[in-house]
Nucleic acid binder design. Structure first.
Lengths: 215, 215
DNA sequence: CCTACCGATCGGTAGG
DNA sequence: CCTACCGATCGGTAGG
């Protein structure tokens, strides 16, 4: 029993509901994530949306401008979840686990986010770095601070390199979802591969941060 | 005092020395790694080599065939270092550290290898997965076995998920070199960022595998 | 938001 | 290994 389209996810129906701009962003995000910016034509995105190419170029003046808009939309969504991440990082029990789970949820909701970030870091590392410095700075600073404070109180291993540790944990989270289809070489065809990878990621982050005595 | 070109690294001089095919592979590897397959034109590679486009298409019949050849060359080089990696993994002291350092050296020698692998895992995950299953299987099996045996003897943490752990450590090594230009958001402009990341990677792998008592 | 069209470049081929 | 060229597609614009 199909309900009247309430949350249309495919670009064509989003466009049909009136939000052409939003439909273009969704279609472009999928194409850029799965095939890359350079391998995606404006025409292909227009086809996904059900519009003519010049219509797309009315909403986004150029192809590079569309890329920026896609990245803006991604980082806007990050800003939406950031408060929850910060809350998890600064209060309550099991701060590390709940913080990681919050970030993981962001990529779990849409693995295209992870693929897009990884592609950008390959295509235009300097540009992404500049963006992330602004958008990611507060969260990273808090985590680094949390690690350093833990080290002063002996709760965190003394030999942890706080900045490098955060970098690697973020890399693990992004890479985990961006490379889900291939990194399971070792995991064969385990049906629960995704959950196992997330669980092991969290375990690795925890054991590499805290001494055994405090687990 | 320039010595007579002994180890020419740029495609044009490799071609001039007679190895046109090799020059094409080097140029294609660089372009595919830095800009991606879809964003690289056959003409651009031919220009790097100093040949005409039809000459390139004489050596490699199609652009997709060139991509396969580039990947073949990469995995051939891996086969060269594999014995050393296996030796490090199966004998001597500090097996884990020396094994990781051997693999890290492979990517350190040419970070394009890491970028290329990451791009392939985004562009064609199924194809790369099939390739890696053949090429990477022996090494992964040995490491997984090593972890499992360690768990039986109590030398390795009981809650380690061997397959997921290997997957993540490989992801860290590849990602570390592929995203060197951007992942340092947290590391600011530390001049020793690269060494710090490698050191922290090894530390994370070690502490997430072994209980503190056995360090 | 469309049709019609632009010059440039794409991967690839004919022929030598 | 080259020159010359192919049809198709590229991002983008004119004009409405």
């Amino acid at each position: 029993m199909p309900t009247p389209a309430s949350l249309p996810r495919d670009p064509a129906s989003i466009a049909a509901s009136g939000d052409v701009r939003g439909a273009i962003l969704v279609a472009a995000t999928r194409r850029f994530a799965s095939k890359g910016f350079g391998a995606t034509s404006v025409q292909a995105i227009a086809d996904d949306v059900g519009s003519a190419k010049p219509s797309l170029l009315y909403w986004f003046k150029t192809k590079p401008a569309l890329r920026e808009a896609v990245l803006d939309a991604l980082l806007d969504r990050w800003k939406d979840v950031l408060p929850g991440v910060l809350a998890a990082a600064t209060s309550g029990e099991d701060r590390l686990d709940s913080t990681l789970r919050a970030v993981i949820g962001f990529f779990e909701d849409d693995p295209d986010r992870a693929r897009l970030l990884l592609r950008e870091s390959l295509d235009r590392p300097a540009a992404l770095r500049a963006r992330l410095r602004v958008q990611l700075a507060p969260w990273v600073a808090i985590v680094v601070d949390y690690v350093r404070r833990g080290q002063r109180y002996g709760e965190v291993r003394a030999d942890v390199d706080a900045e490098a540790w955060v970098t690697h944990v973020v890399l693990l989270m992004v890479g985990c979802f961006a490379t889900a289809g291939v990194a399971d070489v070792a995991l064969a065809d385990a049906p629960d591969a995704a959950e196992r990878r997330v669980a092991e990621l969290v375990r690795m982050a925890r054991t590499s941060l805290f001494p055994d005595a405090l687990h």
